[in-house]
Design a protein around this nucleic acid. Structure first.
Lengths: 243, 243
DNA sequence: CAGTGGTCTAGACCACGGG
DNA sequence: CCGTGGTCTAGACCACTGG
């Protein structure tokens, strides 16, 4: 039934998501784990791993003794903040059509604040990339990304920076992102942002993400500031009790 | 070595967290999974479950073929937004000493916006609880919580509302929270909030959480609005790539 | 009581990293 | 190459829900 790669768990997850999207479980109830295991020809543990992930994503709810059910409320969450998602995808998830404008690419002396955060020398220069993202032609995100040039191992042109930084770094820097630490900050839009994002007078407060991206060795490799029209892109999160 | 409850995974997790906090792994390296399994007398799967959770929490990093390591950067994250944490605890996690003021408890006709969100009748009344949280005597969070009285099955006084709502609902309503859907919204503090939170002129933008709490059956049972001095309580998040 | 999800085990094999 | 974490299996028993 399934191949060996990607992992069985991922395939089972995708399979169940598809069946849920196709409304194949009208009752809202998902078959018992043991039935799924038999049907898909994998062990119950594999099914359970897939279901656990779907539960974390808010797609289903499991109740011991009762069963596994589709979670309607989870559909409100368009973007899971715990996941690194390219902004183009985030815009698409909200039902808009994305456009990217590469506003500006330049080198700049490192800001003192970034010296310790990015672990660079005080006189080093940083590559600064500024982008504007539009949803159905309307500006919704402005981002400014700082990359220490020393990590870039291959030649590139500004065209190569048009796509998500999550693709640039693996392709041109021979390292992968492991995770981001993101701080969520409220800002009153300064004049230049009102201008950039063409904000209507009613919208003055924005969400900003201040993020540091780390590679697999736990070293900081990029810093980014992003500003969101959160009236258009709803930033939602599922929160749970944990042990 | 371990008892059967709480689960072995939880005990292993707590055990490892303690050893990490005690700096017992000077090298920053955590022993191989098989060693831990032998040492603690549990199966490797149990160890792996515990390590997976610690990785999700940002405590460790695992690298296939290389080993498992303590993640220094994870220490920046005081509050994991994906977890439901009582605000008193959040304040404590930031190194402050918390105080709670029960500002106000009253019944109020339901706001039209909440009718559909809380699935109540348009003429129903809601219990409204307003609280102010202080960190080292400084106001940092203001919250307003709406509860449909019909879910409250036991008698209570306003004293019972002094603690976290996460304790009130299980104790007085015979149901448990399963999860919250939280929307993160930036706001410019209106005059009454500037007053309540005693905001200095420099702080005008706040983070607001607009949350709906669901029970295990997936029914909405409470709605809450919270306003944070995010200059004092840093809202940070670990974001990852997922499949 | 039967059926469901929750926990745990022992063992196998794979994929990757570093010496 | 060896040692590490990553994936998967088959089976056992427990805890809870609901009729």
């Amino acid at each position: 039934m399934f191949k060996r790669s990607p992992s069985l768990v991922q395939q089972v997850k995708a399979h169940l998501k598809r069946r849920i999207a196709n409304a194949e479980f009208e009752s809202g109830r998902i078959p018992p784990e043991s039935d799924l295991a038999d049907e898909l020809g994998v062990s119950r543990n594999t099914i359970r791993d897939a279901l656990s992930q779907l539960e974390t994503e808010g797609v289903i709810i499991r109740r011991q003794g009762a069963g596994t059910f589709i979670n309607q409320a989870g559909l409100m969450v368009k973007t899971r903040l715990e996941e690194i998602v390219p902004y183009e995808q985030m815009i698409r998830d909200h039902g808009f059509s994305p456009t990217v404008q590469l506003v500006d690419v330049r080198e700049e002396k490192v800001d003192p604040d970034l010296v310790s955060e990015l672990n660079v020398a005080a006189d080093e220069k940083l590559l600064v990339v500024q982008k504007l993202f539009l949803a159905d032609e309307k500006p919704v995100i402005f981002s400014r990304t700082f990359v220490p040039p020393r990590i870039i191992t291959l030649d590139f042109t500004s065209d190569d920076l048009h796509g998500p930084i999550y693709e640039f770094v693996p392709n041109y820097c021979q390292q992968e992102f492991a995770y981001y630490v993101t701080e969520i900050v409220p800002v009153v839009a300064p004049a230049w942002l009102v201008d950039r994002l063409a904000l209507p007078p009613a919208v003055t407060a924005l969400i900003s993400f201040e993020e540091v991206g780390f590679n697999q060795a736990g070293e900081p490799i990029i810093k980014a500031y992003s500003y969101f029209r959160s009236d258009l892109l709803r930033l939602r999160l599922i929160r749970r009790n944990v042990g």
